[in-house]
Design a protein around this nucleic acid. Structure first.
Lengths: 152, 152
DNA sequence: CACGAAACGTTAGTGCCACTAACAAAGATA
DNA sequence: TATCTTTGTTAGTGGCACTAACGTTTCGTG
């Protein structure tokens, strides 16, 4: 039945996909994170700003679903974005549980700045790949992530 | 020069490579981590055991380089592996700064068990991809990680 | 050979992120 | 009406990547 397999395949360590993914993600996070940190931001801020720009004002819970950031963490992120006037948080009269999160002009401007930095980081990240390979990688990762969706 | 680009490309959020990587890595880490946790292990333990099985006894610093685990974190991992008799830590008489880390029979056995769990997790992770796609993904990630090597 | 630089193992601590638990208030459903 | 769910919020956990510092041992170079 189960092999004892005392010796793993040579170079197993370098080829385990979950390890490769973790390594690549770490590199990517550092490239992006360092640039954003220079602006006092983290990737969460960027994700929220992008989500807001894409679909307009929404509730925190909706933002949470779209960005993958837990709603418990979203609170602090929005506090920070509000502290720099990037967003407005106003109660929703139609549903008084909700806050309506709105992107301000300052938020738009900040997004443009962060977007440039992220794009720069992505370029450096994907530099070793040809355009075709870059597309392939994005495609494969999309297949992976859409298949393993959060149990919503 | 620099575009103001107030509105990011539609669906930008879902296609940012660094985000895709982070998402995929999170899924992978959960699949692997949950299984290892059921055995009281984490991915670090697995990585160290694999590294030891692949190349035999080595120093902690060498293990650190091969696994990517910081040598400061390596101490605790080896303490835990030693506590369950998976490894031996003996001073190296040839270089008294070093400890020689040796995989015990119990360590081999534990590696076989963890390896099976990891293999199972990888299978589930890569299920949505064809064998060719799985190979392509591994290849592309390898290109990325080898290009962005730690500054050693 | 001597001495400064480097490597080793170790302790302590930081920051980011993913994730859980619990709560009050409001809304939806039965 | 009574129950279940959603929403925003606070608090806390655990893993991982990473830095700083220290004593000890070895190496490299003058």
């Amino acid at each position: 039945m189960s092999q004892s397999s005392p010796d793993p395949t040579p170079a197993r360590l370098r080829t385990v996909p979950s390890r490769l993914l973790a390594q690549a993600a770490t590199v990517a996070d550092r490239l992006v994170g360092d640039r954003l940190a220079a602006e006092g931001a983290r990737k969460w801020h960027f994700a929220v700003l992008v989500a807001l720009a894409e679909t307009g004002p929404t509730s925190q819970a909706e933002l949470s679903r779209r960005t993958g950031i837990y709603r418990s963490d979203m609170v602090a992120v929005l506090n920070e974005l509000a502290a720099t006037d990037c967003i407005h948080r106003t109660p929703d009269p139609a549903d008084r549980r909700r806050n309506t999160i709105t992107l301000t002009p300052a938020g738009h401007h900040r997004l443009a700045r962060l977007d440039a930095l992220v794009t720069e980081a992505e370029t450096e990240l994907l530099a070793p790949l040809t355009p075709t390979q870059q597309h392939d990688l994005t495609h494969l990762l999309t297949l992976l992530t859409t298949h393993h969706r959060p149990p919503h």
